[in-house]
Design a protein around this nucleic acid. Structure first.
Length: 465
RNA sequence: GUUCCCAUCGUCUAGAGGCCUAGGACAUUACCCUUUCACGGUAAGUACCGGGGUUCGAAUCCCCGUGGGAACGCCA
């Protein structure tokens, strides 16, 4: 049997970090087994679903590189199929019409809650042998309810949580078709999972309580029951639950914030899953290793600092031309063009080991392309009379120094030596003159990459005429 | 309220009865490297929620408690 998994988001917002991890695990499981990964858009909530959200989810999946093999399927386009199954169930007696109004239902629930009972449908329209139902009232649209087994237990071996059992007596007859004739979530999921021959349902653990209902439905339909793996939730950095109002951000925000997708993926892979002590691995390696047995059952707290560490690691590894493209774009957004400046890959080679994200990298590289204007405080502190004197001497030497790292380093050293100064007393003012900052990578390398012309121009700009 | 789930360093986790005086990683601290800032290297501190069992032996199995979470929609 080939493995078929699916990711089934509802398009009511962007793809957030929790959804992304669910997608990643479903995708990896299918890939690991040479199976099929299906994308299904659960858009039956017409009120809240938007085409923008569909696009945002697609964009997020693409940025992460989680390609699907089938779909995207849209539930709204499968209405005829759902209605067909509902009429079959009505005919077979596994579902029935319920004429209770919404108001009556609300009243019932309020009363149950007042008595501190679990709110649930009381089965008043459920056909039972020997029970006479009232005649269907006129003018009241009906909903269709699933006739859930009244006794016994539903159980399954959850691949992450182990065996879970529910007593059928805890489950009420839930609505599968609304008064307006549209099918509901639990029903659509079941029909789709069956029609799409899903073998492994990997989803968030907020669905644990839906699972027994879905299994009962599946069985009523005579369909095979897939394996279930319920992933526990991801908490925010502060240990609080993520929500639209609190901390939940689009995966695309990570792009904006300067994260590489492979860093986000690697981080997410380790959040709730492990392979011994391995921390850093490629997606190829992840797919090879991934299994359901090593998924943690408890909730995990998101840790931005660890993500940052991984991101820094991947920036160090990344191809310089790719980093060049990323940084060029980010600079362009700030109105900075690299045209006419030093070779971007050469500059990046100096900075990639010291940046935590792409935006920091862009900021670091910025002064190479824009004439720096060190602030008053920095000038006062570093461009002292002694320092300027040294820079003047250095300027003269640099106008003839062969433009190679070793020679340039020598030039700075000799200047310092001749003036009886220590290295930092020359190198730091030089950094300020060249880049507007007292810190930089090795000064000889900075000189080399900047080029003689720009170096002399920048020195002249701080030197008194 | 009811049902269900969860519980190892601050955080992510290893751990499937003896290999655990509990390992790795992030973070923290110290030192080293160094022309600055980083990077890197080395080292240190920090954890099995509590109580009962089972067993020769429990972080690992069972029960209870405590704490946290989820669900109980004509939302998904």
């Amino acid at each position: 049997m080939t493995v078929r998994t699916r990711f089934a988001p509802s398009p009511t917002g962007f793809l957030h970090i929790g959804g992304a991890r669910t997608a990643l695990f479903s995708w990896a499981y299918a890939r690991h087994h040479g199976g099929t990964f299906i994308l299904r858009i659960e858009d039956t909530d017409v009120e809240r679903s938007t085409p923008e959200a569909v696009q945002a989810i697609l964009d997020g999946m693409q940025w992460l590189g989680l390609g699907h093999d089938e779909g995207p399927f849209y539930q709204m386009q499968r209405m005829d199929r759902y209605k067909q199954v509902i009429s079959e169930m009505l005919l077979a007696g596994s579902a029935y019409r319920c004429y209770m109004t919404k108001d009556e239902l609300d009243a019932l629930r309020a009363e149950q809650e007042a008595r501190k009972q679990k709110p649930r449908y009381d089965g008043r329209w459920r056909p039972e042998t020997g029970k006479t139902l009232p005649p269907p009232p006129d003018g009241i649209p009906y909903v269709v309810r699933f006739r859930n087994p009244a006794t016994g237990v539903v159980a399954w071996d959850d691949k992450v949580k182990g065996r879970i059992e529910f007593a059928n007596s805890e489950l009420d007859d839930f609505i599968i078709s609304r008064a307006d004739g549209t099918p509901t979530y639990n029903f659509c999921v079941v029909v789709d999972d069956r029609d799409m021959a899903i073998t492994h349902v990997i989803r968030g653990d907020d669905h644990v309580n839906n699972t027994p209902r879905q299994i009962n439905l599946l069985q009523a339909l005579g369909a095979p029951v897939p394996q279930y793996a319920h992933l526990s939730m991801i908490l925010g950095d502060d240990g609080q639950k993520l929500s639209k109002r609190h901390g939940a951000v689009s995966v695309m925000q990570y792009d904006d914030d300067g994260y590489l997708p492979e860093a986000v993926l690697n981080y997410l892979a380790r959040l709730g899953w492990s392979h011994g002590d391995d921390e850093i691995f490629s997606m190829e390696q992840f797919v090879e290793w991934f299994d359901l047995d090593h998924i943690t059952a408890s909730a995990a707290q998101f840790n931005t600092e660890k993500l940052n560490w991984l991101n820094a690691h991947y920036i160090k590894q990344a191809d310089l031309h790719r980093l060049g493209d990323e940084v060029t774009q980010r600079l362009a957004r700030q109105g900075v063009s690299i045209a006419g400046g030093p070779e971007i890959t050469a500059v990046l080679a100096l900075y990639r080991d010291r940046a935590g994200n792409l935006n920091e990298l862009a900021d670091a590289v910025h002064p190479f392309y824009v004439m720096p204007h060190p602030g008053e405080e920095i000038r006062a502190q570093h461009l002292t009379e002694v320092a300027l004197n040294a820079l003047l001497a250095l300027r003269q030497r640099l106008s003839t120094t062969p433009w190679q790292t070793a020679e340039l380093g020598q030039a700075v050293k000799q200047t310092a030596a001749e003036l009886g100064l220590k290295m930092p007393h020359v190198a730091i003012p030089l950094r300020v003159a060249l880049l507007g900052l007292p810190q930089s990578p090795a000064i000889d390398a900075v000189l080399e990459v900047l080029g003689r012309e720009r170096v002399l121009t920048r020195l002249d700009a701080v030197l008194p005429c």
